[in-house]
């Protein structure tokens, strides 16, 4: 079997996949396929491929998306990447913070016959979209402690934490400085009893509210 012969078989195989051959060519090809496993395999492959063709509309216009979509997607994935990274880092920081509180608790139990502190999880509101934060309270005999873990705040910016009592009195719990490349864990104490505290706020010194919680 020469290469030239196979050119001839290929012409028949390609056409046969798409249209009926005339009887003479059909008989000729069948006879060859009975003998040649190579061509038999080609014929099967091309028939299977040709059978899919009706699924497509090859004249359908290749509609292009709005050119702005590209950068919109780059921005959306970038936002998600930053948010997810912050959430992951926050989870790790929280695990460390929880372990530290647990150790403090164990120490307290050993030193005096009082129950160790329990963390009271608090839901934060108004947290900016690119900030991840988590808050918990610890009730002390003489006041309330806030354990705030926060990631994504403005680097070098001062933040003021203020508790609000049931009576509307504002009690400072202190200030901390933001860092933007890792989560900060702040532990702040306010001279307001837990059962008299109704909210706390995190704000900039000029009064811009960053996040808050009703407790």
């Amino acid at each position: 079997m020469s290469a030239n012969d196979h050119d001839r078989w290929r012409e028949l195989i390609g056409l046969a996949a798409l249209a009926p051959l005339d009887p003479a060519e059909d008989a000729e090809l069948r006879a060859h396929l009975a003998d040649c496993s190579w061509c038999r395999r080609d014929a099967e492959h091309l028939r299977a491929m040709a059978a899919l063709l009706p699924a497509a509309d090859p004249w359908s216009a290749a509609v292009e998306p709005d050119p702005a979509l590209r950068e919109r997607i780059v921005a959306a994935v970038g936002d998600t990447r930053r948010r997810d990274t912050r959430r992951d880092r926050l989870q790790r920081a929280l695990a460390v913070a929880a372990a530290a509180v647990f150790l403090v608790g164990v120490g307290a139990v050993l030193n005096r016959p009082a129950p160790g502190p329990t963390l009271e999880e608090v839901a934060l509101a108004d947290v900016p979209a690119d900030v991840a934060a988590d808050a918990a309270l610890i009730t002390h005999t003489g006041g309330t402690e806030l354990v705030l873990t926060v990631d994504g705040l403005q680097d070098g910016q001062d933040y003021v934490v203020t508790f609000v009592s049931d009576a509307g009195e504002r009690v400072s719990a202190g200030t901390f400085i933001g860092v933007d490349d890792r989560p900060v864990v702040c532990r702040m104490n306010a001279a307001v009893l837990r059962n008299e505290a109704s909210a706390f706020e995190v704000a900039t010194p000029d009064g811009r509210l960053v996040m808050r919680a009703d407790i």
Binding site: R10, G14, L18
Partner: peptide, 18 residues
């Protein structure tokens, strides 16, 4: 035969691409 040959190699190329 040129057109038929294009059918054969075109279907093959289509299959490989798919």
């Amino acid at each position: 035969s040129t057109v038929r040959s294009r059918l054969f190699y075109g279907l093959k190329a289509l299959r490989t691409t798919m």
